[in-house]
Amino acid sequence: MSESPSSSQQQPAVGADRPPALLVNNIEVIYDHVILVLKGVSLEVPEGGIVALLGANGAGKTTTLKAISNLLGAERGDVTKGSIEFSGERVDRMTPNDLVRRGVIQVMEGRHCFEHLTIEENLLTGSYTRSDGRAAILNDLDMVYGYFPQLKERRNAQAGYTSGGEQQMCVIGRALMSRPKMILLDEPSMGLAPQLVEGIFETVKRLNEEEGVSFLLAEQNTDMALKYAKYGYILENGRVVLDGAAAALRQNEDVKEFYLGISASGRKSYRDTKHYKRRKRWLA
């Protein structure tokens, strides 16, 4: 908190040995020219990392992800300040199509399957941007079925009639079909049974280790997210209020109390809860 705004010797978030693949630098997002949603968010995701973006409803997690993947334009949102870089290239003025071609793809919250398409057709739409031929695409289809055997059984079912868990698998599989380097995964646990959530997170971990896909994971399920992520950022009111290695965050008394529901001193009055001051200052 004593950091001055000019302190520029900020250490890279996760181990200086790997360069950040995704670098979000102090972005501000305004909807409809008037509604300020993100008030300066900075974060980075190293290559091959899993980074969690945590916070309550309306904190700005989804907006952050959409700002990166550039889906904001379709909602009359606009990144008005700051910059976003992927692999050293400015990407904040690109279309989603450009970004998917460069390997950044978003999986939106709420399981946006194409309801009237079959599961397999859904997966194939994910390969829209690819031009490396049918054989490679079919090969990846097998890869996706390898991770989600359940999808293979349901491949000819209309996606709208599959279960919530299957739909979540379907949208993650669809994103995989674009051969991504990084998946922006928004709220994969939403509305799913705890057992299914664990399965999804296990798959995320496997994809990270075996396919080398990096993840930026927006989650309300803080406990689960911090188990699988290596690093975490906590958003409140459109600002990053706390960040650190996942293990450190899990030990942080305030995180325990506000987000994990573990308190050392029993029940507390809501009046006594303290709010964070912004601690992190933006990179120059």
């Binding site: 993947s69 889906l71 379709a74 279309t95 989603p96 199509n97 970004l99 998917v100 071609r101 793809i105 978003q106 999986v107 939106m108 946006h112 399957c113 194409f114 309801e115 009237h116 398409l117 057709e121 859904n122 194939l124 739409t125 994910g126 829209y128 941007t129 949208v171 669809r174 994103a175 674009s178």
Partner: peptide
């Protein structure tokens, strides 16, 4: 066809189609 599938995808869900890189 790839384009035809994309057309049906757009019809179902604009946002999701955009997110997988289909240019509207």
């Amino acid at each position: 066809t790839r384009i035809g599938r994309a057309l049906r995808a757009v019809a179902d869900d604009h946002q999701a189609a955009l997110s997988v890189g289909i240019p509207l």
